[in-house]
Simulated scan of single mutants.
Amino acid sequence: MRKRISTPGGLTFAVLALALTLGAAPAKAFFGLGSKHAAVRPQGDAVRIPLAEINDGAAHFYELSDGGKGIRFFVVQSRDGVVRAAFDACDVCYHSRKGYTQDGAQMVCVNCSQRFDVARVNEVKGGCNPAPLERRVDGDTLSIPLAALRAGANFF
Rank of each mutant, 00 (worst) to 15 (best):
13 F>Y: 12
15 V>T: 10
16 L>S: 08
17 A>E: 15
17 A>S: 14
17 A>C: 11
17 A>W: 07
18 L>V: 11
19 A>E: 15
20 L>A: 09
21 T>V: 09
21 T>E: 14
21 T>S: 14
22 L>P: 01
24 A>Y: 07
25 A>F: 03
25 A>L: 06
25 A>Q: 15
25 A>T: 14
26 P>V: 01
26 P>L: 01
26 P>I: 00
29 A>Y: 02
29 A>F: 06
30 F>V: 08
32 G>S: 08
32 G>E: 11
32 G>L: 03
35 S>P: 03
35 S>Q: 04
36 K>L: 02
36 K>Q: 10
37 H>D: 02
37 H>A: 05
38 A>C: 06
38 A>E: 15
38 A>P: 08
40 V>C: 02
42 P>A: 12
43 Q>E: 14
44 G>H: 09
45 D>P: 02
46 A>S: 15
46 A>L: 08
48 R>Y: 09
48 R>K: 05
50 P>S: 10
51 L>C: 09
52 A>E: 15
52 A>Q: 15
52 A>C: 12
53 E>I: 08
55 N>S: 14
55 N>E: 15
56 D>E: 12
57 G>D: 14
57 G>Q: 11
58 A>M: 12
58 A>D: 13
59 A>M: 13
60 H>V: 10
61 F>E: 15
63 E>I: 03
65 S>A: 04
65 S>H: 00
66 D>C: 02
66 D>Y: 01
67 G>W: 05
67 G>P: 07
68 G>S: 03
70 G>Y: 03
71 I>L: 05
72 R>D: 01
72 R>Y: 00
73 F>D: 08
73 F>E: 08
73 F>T: 01
75 V>H: 11
75 V>L: 14
76 V>Y: 06
76 V>M: 06
78 S>T: 09
79 R>E: 13
79 R>M: 04
80 D>G: 05
81 G>T: 12
82 V>C: 09
82 V>G: 11
82 V>M: 11
82 V>W: 12
84 R>L: 12
86 A>Y: 01
86 A>V: 02
86 A>R: 04
87 F>A: 01
87 F>R: 00
88 D>Q: 02
88 D>W: 03
88 D>I: 00
89 A>K: 00
91 D>A: 01
91 D>M: 00
92 V>T: 05
93 C>E: 02
93 C>Y: 00
94 Y>E: 06
94 Y>A: 01
96 S>W: 02
97 R>C: 12
97 R>S: 14
98 K>Q: 07
99 G>K: 00
100 Y>N: 10
101 T>W: 02
101 T>S: 13
102 Q>H: 03
105 A>D: 15
105 A>I: 12
106 Q>F: 07
106 Q>A: 07
106 Q>G: 05
107 M>K: 04
108 V>G: 10
109 C>E: 06
110 V>M: 01
111 N>F: 08
111 N>H: 05
113 S>Y: 06
115 R>H: 13
116 F>L: 02
117 D>Q: 11
119 A>T: 12
121 V>P: 01
123 E>P: 05
125 K>V: 05
126 G>A: 00
127 G>I: 03
128 C>P: 07
130 P>G: 06
131 A>P: 04
132 P>E: 07
132 P>G: 00
133 L>C: 02
133 L>W: 03
133 L>A: 09
133 L>K: 04
134 E>F: 02
135 R>I: 11
135 R>M: 13
137 V>M: 10
137 V>R: 10
138 D>M: 07
140 D>P: 06
140 D>Y: 04
140 D>I: 06
143 S>G: 06
143 S>W: 11
144 I>S: 07
144 I>C: 04
145 P>S: 09
